[in-house]
Design a protein around this nucleic acid. Structure first.
Lengths: 250, 250
DNA sequence: TTACTGTAAACTGTCAACAGTTTACTAAAA
DNA sequence: TTTTAGTAAACTGTTGACAGTTTACAGTAA
Protein backbone atom coordinates (compact mmCIF):
# COMPACT_ATOMS: atom_id res chain seq x y z
CA UNK A 1 0.00 0.00 0.00
CA UNK A 2 2.21 2.73 -1.28
CA UNK A 3 -0.48 5.31 -0.91
CA UNK A 4 -0.67 4.64 2.80
CA UNK A 5 2.20 6.96 3.45
CA UNK A 6 4.39 4.37 5.02
CA UNK A 7 1.79 3.16 7.44
CA UNK A 8 1.26 -0.50 6.70
CA UNK A 9 -2.07 -1.89 7.73
CA UNK A 10 -2.76 -4.89 5.50
CA UNK A 11 -2.87 -8.42 6.83
CA UNK A 12 -2.49 -11.48 4.65
CA UNK A 13 -2.16 -14.28 7.12
CA UNK A 14 -4.54 -16.82 5.60
CA UNK A 15 -5.05 -17.39 1.92
CA UNK A 16 -6.01 -14.17 0.18
CA UNK A 17 -5.18 -12.52 -3.11
CA UNK A 18 -1.44 -12.51 -3.48
CA UNK A 19 0.22 -9.15 -2.99
CA UNK A 20 1.17 -7.97 -6.44
CA UNK A 21 4.84 -7.38 -7.01
CA UNK A 22 5.73 -3.84 -6.14
CA UNK A 23 6.72 -1.68 -9.05
CA UNK A 24 9.95 0.27 -9.06
CA UNK A 25 7.91 3.46 -8.74
CA UNK A 26 6.36 2.18 -5.54
CA UNK A 27 9.66 1.20 -4.04
CA UNK A 28 11.24 4.46 -5.09
CA UNK A 29 8.33 6.32 -3.51
CA UNK A 30 8.71 4.51 -0.21
CA UNK A 31 12.45 4.96 -0.18
CA UNK A 32 12.37 8.64 -1.00
CA UNK A 33 9.66 9.32 1.57
CA UNK A 34 11.71 7.52 4.18
CA UNK A 35 14.81 9.49 3.27
CA UNK A 36 13.00 12.78 3.43
CA UNK A 37 11.44 11.92 6.78
CA UNK A 38 14.82 10.79 8.07
CA UNK A 39 16.22 14.17 7.16
CA UNK A 40 18.61 12.90 4.48
CA UNK A 41 17.12 15.56 2.27
CA UNK A 42 16.87 18.97 3.85
CA UNK A 43 13.83 21.22 3.72
CA UNK A 44 13.58 22.93 0.36
CA UNK A 45 16.32 20.79 -1.12
CA UNK A 46 16.18 20.12 -4.81
CA UNK A 47 15.42 16.59 -5.95
CA UNK A 48 17.04 15.96 -9.32
CA UNK A 49 15.46 13.09 -11.19
CA UNK A 50 18.59 11.95 -12.98
CA UNK A 51 20.75 11.94 -9.88
CA UNK A 52 18.23 9.97 -7.84
CA UNK A 53 17.74 7.55 -10.73
CA UNK A 54 21.46 6.99 -10.99
CA UNK A 55 21.78 6.47 -7.25
CA UNK A 56 18.94 3.92 -7.25
CA UNK A 57 20.24 2.39 -10.47
CA UNK A 58 16.93 2.73 -12.25
CA UNK A 59 15.76 4.99 -15.05
CA UNK A 60 14.17 8.38 -14.63
CA UNK A 61 10.63 7.17 -15.35
CA UNK A 62 9.89 5.49 -12.03
CA UNK A 63 11.66 8.29 -10.15
CA UNK A 64 9.44 10.79 -11.90
CA UNK A 65 6.36 8.88 -10.85
CA UNK A 66 7.64 8.62 -7.29
CA UNK A 67 8.11 12.38 -7.13
CA UNK A 68 4.58 12.86 -8.43
CA UNK A 69 3.26 10.60 -5.71
CA UNK A 70 5.18 12.46 -3.04
CA UNK A 71 3.81 15.68 -4.43
CA UNK A 72 0.32 14.30 -3.95
CA UNK A 73 1.31 13.53 -0.36
CA UNK A 74 2.39 17.11 0.12
CA UNK A 75 5.99 16.23 0.88
CA UNK A 76 7.35 17.50 -2.42
CA UNK A 77 6.66 20.62 -4.43
CA UNK A 78 7.03 20.70 -8.21
CA UNK A 79 7.68 23.67 -10.43
CA UNK A 80 7.07 23.12 -14.14
CA UNK A 81 10.32 22.78 -16.06
CA UNK A 82 12.25 23.63 -12.91
CA UNK A 83 12.05 20.43 -10.98
CA UNK A 84 11.01 19.02 -7.63
CA UNK A 85 11.91 20.22 -4.16
CA UNK A 86 11.32 19.01 -0.65
CA UNK A 87 8.68 21.30 0.82
CA UNK A 88 9.55 24.22 3.03
CA UNK A 89 7.65 24.03 6.28
CA UNK A 90 6.60 27.22 7.98
CA UNK A 91 4.60 27.86 11.10
CA UNK A 92 1.75 28.77 8.81
CA UNK A 93 1.88 25.26 7.36
CA UNK A 94 1.68 23.81 10.84
CA UNK A 95 -1.35 25.94 11.56
CA UNK A 96 -3.04 24.80 8.35
CA UNK A 97 -2.34 21.15 8.94
CA UNK A 98 -3.62 21.27 12.48
CA UNK A 99 -6.85 22.93 11.42
CA UNK A 100 -7.23 20.25 8.79
CA UNK A 101 -6.49 17.60 11.39
CA UNK A 102 -9.18 19.01 13.66
CA UNK A 103 -11.70 18.77 10.84
CA UNK A 104 -10.76 15.23 9.82
CA UNK A 105 -10.04 13.63 13.14
CA UNK A 106 -12.95 15.29 14.91
CA UNK A 107 -15.28 13.86 12.33
CA UNK A 108 -13.59 10.48 12.58
CA UNK A 109 -14.25 10.45 16.32
CA UNK A 110 -17.85 11.32 15.70
CA UNK A 111 -18.26 8.56 13.13
CA UNK A 112 -16.82 5.96 15.48
CA UNK A 113 -19.22 7.10 18.15
CA UNK A 114 -22.31 7.05 15.96
CA UNK A 115 -21.39 3.60 14.70
CA UNK A 116 -21.05 2.42 18.32
CA UNK A 117 -18.11 0.25 17.27
CA UNK A 118 -16.82 -1.00 20.62
CA UNK A 119 -14.06 -3.07 19.03
CA UNK A 120 -12.70 0.18 17.63
CA UNK A 121 -12.51 1.60 21.14
CA UNK A 122 -10.57 -1.47 22.25
CA UNK A 123 -8.06 -0.96 19.49
CA UNK A 124 -7.56 2.65 20.40
CA UNK A 125 -7.22 1.73 24.05
CA UNK A 126 -4.49 -0.71 23.18
CA UNK A 127 -2.47 1.94 21.36
CA UNK A 128 -3.10 4.28 24.27
CA UNK A 129 -1.51 1.76 26.62
CA UNK A 130 1.54 1.48 24.40
CA UNK A 131 1.67 5.24 24.37
CA UNK A 132 1.69 5.27 28.14
CA UNK A 133 4.54 2.79 28.23
CA UNK A 134 6.56 4.86 25.76
CA UNK A 135 5.97 7.93 27.90
CA UNK A 136 7.11 6.08 31.02
CA UNK A 137 10.26 4.95 29.30
CA UNK A 138 10.87 8.41 27.92
CA UNK A 139 11.23 7.04 24.40
CA UNK A 140 10.36 10.13 22.35
CA UNK A 141 10.87 8.56 18.96
CA UNK A 142 8.59 5.64 19.80
CA UNK A 143 6.11 8.03 21.36
CA UNK A 144 5.76 10.14 18.23
CA UNK A 145 5.41 6.99 16.17
CA UNK A 146 2.60 5.75 18.40
CA UNK A 147 1.09 9.21 18.48
CA UNK A 148 0.83 9.09 14.71
CA UNK A 149 -0.49 5.53 14.86
CA UNK A 150 -3.20 6.51 17.35
CA UNK A 151 -4.55 9.21 15.11
CA UNK A 152 -4.16 7.12 11.99
CA UNK A 153 -6.14 4.33 13.57
CA UNK A 154 -8.77 6.78 14.69
CA UNK A 155 -9.33 7.77 11.07
CA UNK A 156 -9.17 4.20 9.81
CA UNK A 157 -11.69 3.00 12.36
CA UNK A 158 -14.09 5.72 11.31
CA UNK A 159 -14.96 3.35 8.49
CA UNK A 160 -14.72 6.19 5.99
CA UNK A 161 -11.96 5.30 3.57
CA UNK A 162 -11.77 8.78 2.11
CA UNK A 163 -11.43 10.38 5.51
CA UNK A 164 -8.60 7.99 6.17
CA UNK A 165 -7.00 8.79 2.84
CA UNK A 166 -6.96 12.46 3.70
CA UNK A 167 -5.22 11.64 6.94
CA UNK A 168 -2.69 9.56 5.07
CA UNK A 169 -2.19 12.39 2.61
CA UNK A 170 -0.87 14.64 5.36
CA UNK A 171 0.59 11.90 7.54
CA UNK A 172 3.94 12.10 5.79
CA UNK A 173 4.22 15.82 6.41
CA UNK A 174 3.07 15.28 9.97
CA UNK A 175 5.81 12.70 10.36
CA UNK A 176 8.29 15.29 9.14
CA UNK A 177 6.99 17.81 11.65
CA UNK A 178 7.26 15.24 14.43
CA UNK A 179 10.83 14.47 13.47
CA UNK A 180 11.78 18.11 13.58
CA UNK A 181 10.02 18.32 16.91
CA UNK A 182 11.93 15.38 18.39
CA UNK A 183 15.19 17.00 17.35
CA UNK A 184 14.30 20.16 19.21
CA UNK A 185 12.12 19.00 22.05
CA UNK A 186 14.97 17.98 24.34
CA UNK A 187 15.65 21.63 24.96
CA UNK A 188 12.06 22.36 25.99
CA UNK A 189 10.21 21.79 29.27
CA UNK A 190 7.36 19.78 27.78
CA UNK A 191 7.06 16.27 29.10
CA UNK A 192 5.80 13.14 27.43
CA UNK A 193 3.53 12.63 30.42
CA UNK A 194 1.64 15.78 29.53
CA UNK A 195 1.33 14.65 25.95
CA UNK A 196 0.12 11.24 27.05
CA UNK A 197 -2.41 12.76 29.40
CA UNK A 198 -3.75 14.76 26.52
CA UNK A 199 -4.31 11.64 24.48
CA UNK A 200 -5.97 9.90 27.38
CA UNK A 201 -8.35 12.80 27.79
CA UNK A 202 -9.25 12.59 24.11
CA UNK A 203 -9.83 8.88 24.37
CA UNK A 204 -12.02 9.23 27.44
CA UNK A 205 -14.17 11.68 25.54
CA UNK A 206 -14.57 9.26 22.65
CA UNK A 207 -15.23 6.43 25.04
CA UNK A 208 -18.06 8.40 26.58
CA UNK A 209 -19.84 8.10 23.22
CA UNK A 210 -20.76 11.78 23.37
CA UNK A 211 -20.05 13.03 19.86
CA UNK A 212 -19.98 16.70 20.73
CA UNK A 213 -17.72 16.21 23.69
CA UNK A 214 -15.39 14.07 21.58
CA UNK A 215 -15.19 16.67 18.85
CA UNK A 216 -14.41 19.37 21.34
CA UNK A 217 -11.79 17.20 23.00
CA UNK A 218 -10.22 16.62 19.62
CA UNK A 219 -10.18 20.34 18.92
CA UNK A 220 -8.59 21.06 22.28
CA UNK A 221 -6.08 18.25 21.93
CA UNK A 222 -4.92 19.52 18.57
CA UNK A 223 -4.96 23.15 19.65
CA UNK A 224 -2.64 22.31 22.52
CA UNK A 225 -0.41 20.17 20.31
CA UNK A 226 -0.16 22.97 17.80
CA UNK A 227 0.65 25.60 20.39
CA UNK A 228 3.25 23.27 21.81
CA UNK A 229 4.81 22.97 18.37
CA UNK A 230 4.79 26.69 17.78
CA UNK A 231 6.38 27.21 21.17
CA UNK A 232 9.10 24.68 20.42
CA UNK A 233 9.93 26.05 17.03
CA UNK A 234 9.61 29.66 18.09
CA UNK A 235 8.43 31.05 14.81
CA UNK A 236 10.68 29.34 12.35
CA UNK A 237 10.65 25.73 11.34
CA UNK A 238 13.00 25.97 8.42
CA UNK A 239 16.18 26.24 10.42
CA UNK A 240 17.99 27.42 7.31
CA UNK A 241 18.36 23.76 6.50
CA UNK A 242 17.87 24.89 2.93
CA UNK A 243 20.27 23.65 0.30
CA UNK A 244 20.66 24.74 -3.28
CA UNK A 245 22.06 21.62 -4.85
CA UNK A 246 20.94 18.03 -4.70
CA UNK A 247 22.64 15.56 -2.39
CA UNK A 248 20.73 12.39 -3.11
CA UNK A 249 22.16 9.84 -0.72
CA UNK A 250 23.32 9.17 2.78
CA UNK B 1 -3.73 25.16 -11.94
CA UNK B 2 -4.09 21.59 -13.01
CA UNK B 3 -4.45 20.39 -9.48
CA UNK B 4 -7.52 22.55 -9.07
CA UNK B 5 -9.74 19.91 -10.55
CA UNK B 6 -11.03 22.11 -13.31
CA UNK B 7 -11.98 24.99 -11.08
CA UNK B 8 -9.96 27.94 -12.23
CA UNK B 9 -9.41 30.57 -9.60
CA UNK B 10 -6.20 32.35 -10.49
CA UNK B 11 -6.18 35.99 -11.44
CA UNK B 12 -3.35 37.54 -13.38
CA UNK B 13 -4.79 40.83 -14.41
CA UNK B 14 -1.91 43.07 -13.42
CA UNK B 15 1.72 42.22 -13.79
CA UNK B 16 2.58 38.99 -12.03
CA UNK B 17 4.77 36.00 -12.71
CA UNK B 18 3.98 34.72 -16.16
CA UNK B 19 1.98 31.54 -16.27
CA UNK B 20 4.41 28.83 -17.34
CA UNK B 21 3.56 26.94 -20.48
CA UNK B 22 1.37 23.99 -19.68
CA UNK B 23 2.96 20.61 -20.14
CA UNK B 24 1.34 17.89 -22.20
CA UNK B 25 0.63 16.00 -18.98
CA UNK B 26 -1.34 18.94 -17.64
CA UNK B 27 -3.37 19.33 -20.78
CA UNK B 28 -3.98 15.61 -20.97
CA UNK B 29 -5.10 15.65 -17.33
CA UNK B 30 -7.57 18.46 -17.95
CA UNK B 31 -8.90 16.87 -21.09
CA UNK B 32 -9.36 13.44 -19.58
CA UNK B 33 -11.04 14.84 -16.49
CA UNK B 34 -13.40 16.80 -18.67
CA UNK B 35 -14.21 13.74 -20.74
CA UNK B 36 -14.86 11.61 -17.71
CA UNK B 37 -17.09 14.27 -16.15
CA UNK B 38 -18.93 14.67 -19.44
CA UNK B 39 -19.64 10.96 -19.42
CA UNK B 40 -17.59 10.13 -22.49
CA UNK B 41 -16.02 7.42 -20.40
CA UNK B 42 -18.46 5.29 -18.48
CA UNK B 43 -18.15 4.32 -14.85
CA UNK B 44 -15.64 1.54 -14.40
CA UNK B 45 -14.44 1.82 -17.98
CA UNK B 46 -10.88 0.88 -18.69
CA UNK B 47 -8.48 3.63 -19.70
CA UNK B 48 -5.78 2.20 -21.91
CA UNK B 49 -2.68 4.35 -22.02
CA UNK B 50 -1.67 3.53 -25.56
CA UNK B 51 -5.11 4.15 -27.03
CA UNK B 52 -5.49 7.49 -25.29
CA UNK B 53 -1.98 8.47 -26.34
CA UNK B 54 -2.71 7.61 -29.94
CA UNK B 55 -5.97 9.53 -29.86
CA UNK B 56 -4.28 12.62 -28.42
CA UNK B 57 -1.28 12.15 -30.71
CA UNK B 58 1.22 12.18 -27.88
CA UNK B 59 3.34 9.45 -26.33
CA UNK B 60 2.34 7.29 -23.40
CA UNK B 61 4.47 9.16 -20.86
CA UNK B 62 2.28 12.23 -20.41
CA UNK B 63 -0.86 10.10 -20.51
CA UNK B 64 0.57 7.97 -17.73
CA UNK B 65 1.20 11.03 -15.63
CA UNK B 66 -2.27 12.34 -16.33
CA UNK B 67 -3.79 9.08 -15.14
CA UNK B 68 -1.69 9.28 -11.98
CA UNK B 69 -2.97 12.77 -11.34
CA UNK B 70 -6.57 11.69 -11.86
CA UNK B 71 -5.97 8.84 -9.49
CA UNK B 72 -4.86 11.36 -6.89
CA UNK B 73 -8.11 13.20 -7.55
CA UNK B 74 -10.04 10.02 -6.91
CA UNK B 75 -11.55 9.91 -10.37
CA UNK B 76 -9.46 7.00 -11.56
CA UNK B 77 -8.47 3.74 -9.93
CA UNK B 78 -5.24 1.96 -10.81
CA UNK B 79 -4.42 -1.71 -10.45
CA UNK B 80 -0.73 -2.61 -10.71
CA UNK B 81 0.08 -4.20 -14.05
CA UNK B 82 -3.61 -4.22 -14.93
CA UNK B 83 -4.22 -0.64 -15.83
CA UNK B 84 -6.41 2.33 -14.99
CA UNK B 85 -10.17 2.47 -14.74
CA UNK B 86 -12.75 5.17 -14.21
CA UNK B 87 -14.01 4.71 -10.66
CA UNK B 88 -17.20 2.90 -9.87
CA UNK B 89 -19.47 5.05 -7.76
CA UNK B 90 -21.72 3.39 -5.23
CA UNK B 91 -24.09 4.81 -2.69
CA UNK B 92 -21.46 4.01 -0.10
CA UNK B 93 -19.05 6.33 -1.93
CA UNK B 94 -21.63 9.08 -1.83
CA UNK B 95 -22.02 8.57 1.89
CA UNK B 96 -18.28 8.72 2.41
CA UNK B 97 -17.84 11.83 0.36
CA UNK B 98 -20.64 13.64 2.11
CA UNK B 99 -19.23 12.83 5.54
CA UNK B 100 -15.89 14.12 4.33
CA UNK B 101 -17.57 17.22 2.97
CA UNK B 102 -19.23 17.85 6.31
CA UNK B 103 -15.85 17.70 8.02
CA UNK B 104 -14.09 19.95 5.54
CA UNK B 105 -16.77 22.48 4.75
CA UNK B 106 -17.97 22.75 8.31
CA UNK B 107 -14.48 23.64 9.40
CA UNK B 108 -14.14 26.07 6.50
CA UNK B 109 -17.26 27.87 7.67
CA UNK B 110 -15.86 28.04 11.17
CA UNK B 111 -12.56 29.44 9.96
CA UNK B 112 -14.26 32.15 7.97
CA UNK B 113 -16.29 33.08 11.02
CA UNK B 114 -13.35 33.20 13.40
CA UNK B 115 -11.39 35.30 10.93
CA UNK B 116 -14.35 37.72 10.71
CA UNK B 117 -13.64 38.16 7.00
CA UNK B 118 -16.63 40.19 5.85
CA UNK B 119 -15.40 40.41 2.28
CA UNK B 120 -15.62 36.64 2.19
CA UNK B 121 -19.26 36.82 3.16
CA UNK B 122 -19.87 39.26 0.33
CA UNK B 123 -18.33 36.87 -2.15
CA UNK B 124 -20.49 34.01 -0.93
CA UNK B 125 -23.56 36.21 -1.03
CA UNK B 126 -22.84 37.04 -4.65
CA UNK B 127 -22.69 33.38 -5.62
CA UNK B 128 -25.85 32.80 -3.62
CA UNK B 129 -27.62 35.40 -5.73
CA UNK B 130 -26.49 33.73 -8.92
CA UNK B 131 -27.73 30.47 -7.47
CA UNK B 132 -31.13 32.03 -6.87
CA UNK B 133 -31.29 33.23 -10.45
CA UNK B 134 -30.37 29.80 -11.79
CA UNK B 135 -33.10 28.28 -9.64
CA UNK B 136 -35.64 30.79 -10.93
CA UNK B 137 -34.71 30.01 -14.50
CA UNK B 138 -34.78 26.29 -13.80
CA UNK B 139 -31.31 25.85 -15.25
CA UNK B 140 -30.20 22.68 -13.50
CA UNK B 141 -26.81 22.42 -15.15
CA UNK B 142 -25.93 25.98 -14.22
CA UNK B 143 -27.32 25.40 -10.75
CA UNK B 144 -25.09 22.42 -10.04
CA UNK B 145 -22.14 24.34 -11.38
CA UNK B 146 -22.84 27.24 -9.04
CA UNK B 147 -23.57 24.84 -6.21
CA UNK B 148 -20.07 23.44 -6.64
CA UNK B 149 -18.65 26.96 -6.92
CA UNK B 150 -20.35 28.04 -3.70
CA UNK B 151 -18.80 25.26 -1.70
CA UNK B 152 -15.46 25.59 -3.41
CA UNK B 153 -15.36 29.26 -2.57
CA UNK B 154 -16.32 28.52 1.00
CA UNK B 155 -13.23 26.34 1.32
CA UNK B 156 -11.01 28.78 -0.51
CA UNK B 157 -12.12 31.69 1.64
CA UNK B 158 -11.30 29.71 4.76
CA UNK B 159 -7.76 30.83 4.10
CA UNK B 160 -6.51 27.30 4.69
CA UNK B 161 -4.91 26.14 1.45
CA UNK B 162 -4.78 22.52 2.51
CA UNK B 163 -8.45 22.47 3.42
CA UNK B 164 -9.15 23.86 -0.01
CA UNK B 165 -6.93 21.28 -1.63
CA UNK B 166 -8.89 18.51 0.01
CA UNK B 167 -12.07 20.01 -1.37
CA UNK B 168 -10.51 20.15 -4.80
CA UNK B 169 -9.38 16.56 -4.44
CA UNK B 170 -12.96 15.37 -4.25
CA UNK B 171 -14.49 18.13 -6.37
CA UNK B 172 -14.00 16.13 -9.56
CA UNK B 173 -15.87 13.16 -8.15
CA UNK B 174 -18.51 15.49 -6.79
CA UNK B 175 -18.87 16.94 -10.27
CA UNK B 176 -19.39 13.44 -11.58
CA UNK B 177 -22.05 12.78 -8.96
CA UNK B 178 -23.80 16.03 -9.86
CA UNK B 179 -23.77 15.13 -13.52
CA UNK B 180 -25.37 11.77 -12.82
CA UNK B 181 -27.88 13.58 -10.63
CA UNK B 182 -28.83 16.06 -13.33
CA UNK B 183 -29.45 13.19 -15.73
CA UNK B 184 -31.85 11.59 -13.30
CA UNK B 185 -33.33 14.45 -11.39
CA UNK B 186 -35.97 15.29 -13.96
CA UNK B 187 -37.90 12.25 -12.88
CA UNK B 188 -37.93 13.27 -9.22
CA UNK B 189 -40.07 15.73 -7.28
CA UNK B 190 -37.20 17.75 -5.89
CA UNK B 191 -37.19 21.38 -6.91
CA UNK B 192 -34.31 23.72 -7.36
CA UNK B 193 -36.10 26.15 -5.08
CA UNK B 194 -35.74 23.73 -2.19
CA UNK B 195 -32.08 23.29 -2.95
CA UNK B 196 -31.58 27.02 -3.14
CA UNK B 197 -33.39 27.55 0.15
CA UNK B 198 -31.05 25.07 1.72
CA UNK B 199 -28.05 27.06 0.59
CA UNK B 200 -29.56 30.28 1.80
CA UNK B 201 -30.12 28.76 5.21
CA UNK B 202 -26.50 27.69 5.34
CA UNK B 203 -25.34 31.14 4.33
CA UNK B 204 -27.51 32.85 6.94
CA UNK B 205 -25.94 30.66 9.59
CA UNK B 206 -22.44 31.63 8.46
CA UNK B 207 -23.46 35.26 8.25
CA UNK B 208 -24.61 35.13 11.86
CA UNK B 209 -20.96 34.55 12.80
CA UNK B 210 -21.99 31.80 15.19
CA UNK B 211 -19.47 29.05 14.51
CA UNK B 212 -21.45 26.28 16.14
CA UNK B 213 -24.64 27.21 14.37
CA UNK B 214 -22.79 27.36 11.05
CA UNK B 215 -21.24 23.95 11.53
CA UNK B 216 -24.58 22.45 12.36
CA UNK B 217 -26.18 24.14 9.38
CA UNK B 218 -23.45 22.71 7.19
CA UNK B 219 -24.05 19.25 8.61
CA UNK B 220 -27.77 19.54 8.02
CA UNK B 221 -27.33 20.95 4.55
CA UNK B 222 -25.11 18.10 3.50
CA UNK B 223 -27.23 15.48 5.25
CA UNK B 224 -30.23 16.64 3.28
CA UNK B 225 -28.28 16.81 0.03
CA UNK B 226 -27.01 13.32 0.58
CA UNK B 227 -30.42 11.89 1.37
CA UNK B 228 -31.75 13.63 -1.70
CA UNK B 229 -29.05 11.94 -3.78
CA UNK B 230 -29.72 8.54 -2.29
CA UNK B 231 -33.41 8.99 -2.95
CA UNK B 232 -32.78 9.96 -6.57
CA UNK B 233 -30.45 7.09 -7.26
CA UNK B 234 -32.46 4.59 -5.29
CA UNK B 235 -29.62 2.41 -4.17
CA UNK B 236 -27.56 2.09 -7.30
CA UNK B 237 -25.48 4.74 -8.95
CA UNK B 238 -23.66 2.53 -11.39
CA UNK B 239 -26.52 2.10 -13.83
CA UNK B 240 -24.65 -0.77 -15.46
CA UNK B 241 -22.87 1.88 -17.44
CA UNK B 242 -19.90 -0.41 -17.13
CA UNK B 243 -17.89 -1.23 -20.24
CA UNK B 244 -15.11 -3.74 -20.71
CA UNK B 245 -13.10 -2.13 -23.47
CA UNK B 246 -11.73 1.34 -23.91
CA UNK B 247 -13.51 3.86 -26.07
CA UNK B 248 -11.25 6.87 -25.83
CA UNK B 249 -13.04 9.51 -27.82
CA UNK B 250 -16.35 11.16 -28.46
C1' DT C 1 -21.48 -29.45 -23.02
C1' DT C 2 -17.84 -28.19 -19.31
C1' DA C 3 -13.24 -27.86 -17.51
C1' DC C 4 -8.61 -27.44 -18.45
C1' DT C 5 -4.32 -26.17 -21.08
C1' DG C 6 -1.52 -23.79 -24.09
C1' DT C 7 -0.69 -19.91 -27.18
C1' DA C 8 -1.19 -15.27 -29.20
C1' DA C 9 -2.45 -10.60 -28.52
C1' DA C 10 -2.78 -6.65 -25.60
C1' DC C 11 -1.03 -3.87 -22.25
C1' DT C 12 1.82 -2.04 -18.48
C1' DG C 13 6.49 -1.20 -16.51
C1' DT C 14 10.87 0.25 -17.65
C1' DC C 15 14.59 2.09 -20.26
C1' DA C 16 17.63 5.09 -23.09
C1' DA C 17 17.92 8.95 -26.09
C1' DC C 18 16.60 13.54 -27.92
C1' DA C 19 14.78 18.35 -27.77
C1' DG C 20 13.96 22.49 -25.60
C1' DT C 21 14.21 25.18 -21.44
C1' DT C 22 16.42 26.86 -17.38
C1' DT C 23 20.47 27.84 -14.81
C1' DA C 24 25.33 28.87 -14.00
C1' DC C 25 29.24 30.86 -15.66
C1' DT C 26 32.31 33.90 -18.34
C1' DA C 27 33.47 37.96 -20.50
C1' DA C 28 32.59 42.48 -22.31
C1' DA C 29 30.66 47.12 -21.54
C1' DA C 30 29.25 50.95 -18.60
C1' DT D 1 32.82 47.58 -9.40
C1' DT D 2 28.21 46.69 -11.44
C1' DT D 3 25.44 45.55 -15.26
C1' DT D 4 24.58 43.25 -19.48
C1' DA D 5 25.11 39.91 -23.01
C1' DG D 6 26.49 35.53 -24.55
C1' DT D 7 27.64 30.65 -24.02
C1' DA D 8 27.98 26.06 -21.97
C1' DA D 9 26.18 22.82 -18.75
C1' DA D 10 22.37 20.83 -16.33
C1' DC D 11 17.94 19.40 -16.19
C1' DT D 12 13.06 18.48 -17.39
C1' DG D 13 9.55 17.08 -20.91
C1' DT D 14 8.74 13.90 -24.29
C1' DT D 15 9.37 10.09 -27.31
C1' DG D 16 9.75 5.33 -29.11
C1' DA D 17 11.24 0.70 -28.14
C1' DC D 18 11.68 -3.55 -25.42
C1' DA D 19 10.58 -6.94 -21.70
C1' DG D 20 7.55 -9.27 -18.85
C1' DT D 21 2.89 -9.81 -17.28
C1' DT D 22 -1.97 -10.24 -17.91
C1' DT D 23 -5.93 -11.31 -20.66
C1' DA D 24 -8.51 -13.48 -24.36
C1' DC D 25 -9.09 -17.22 -27.15
C1' DA D 26 -8.75 -21.59 -29.43
C1' DG D 27 -8.18 -26.31 -28.90
C1' DT D 28 -8.17 -30.63 -26.29
C1' DA D 29 -9.81 -33.88 -22.92
C1' DA D 30 -13.33 -35.30 -19.80
Amino acid sequence: MTEAGGIEVGDNGSLGPLRRAETLSDRATDLLRERILAGDFGLGERLVEAKIAKRLEISRGPVREALRQLRAEGLVREEPRRGSFVIDLTIEDVREIYDLRAAIEGRAARLIITSKDLAALDELREILHQLERAADEGDRTLFTKLDLAFHERLCLLSGNGRLHRVFVSYAAVLGLIFRLEVDKIYTSRSSLEDLYGDHEKLFRAIESLDARRAEEACDEHLDRAREQLIKVFGGSLAKSERAADARPGA
